[in-house]
């Protein structure tokens, strides 16, 4: 298992900084919709969220 920082950095590098056009969060924003907090760039929803 790896750290939270590693996870976040991985998503950021794979989507935000490179293939952002396929990011579901980006796509929702482009349609004028705010993405849900737990929506991952891949389109899946994180099943849990911290309070």
């Amino acid at each position: 298992m790896f750290s939270l920082k590693s996870s976040l950095k991985t998503w950021q590098i794979r989507y935000c900084d490179s293939d952002f056009k396929v990011c579901h969060r980006y796509a929702m924003t482009e349609r004028g919709q705010a993405p849900p907090d737990n929506l991952l760039p891949s389109g899946k929803h994180l099943p849990v969220l911290a309070r």
Binding site: L4, S7, P36, K44, L46, P47
Partner: peptide, 30 residues
């Protein structure tokens, strides 16, 4: 992009460790 929207299809946990584990699993899967 700055607007917040409630999470969907999720349950709230109080432990940061649970969140970290869930995100790590999703990252590993992806």
């Amino acid at each position: 992009s700055l607007r917040r929207r409630p999470a969907e299809e999720t349950q709230t946990v109080s432990s940061m460790a649970e969140l970290e584990a869930a995100l790590a699993a999703a990252t590993l899967e992806a």
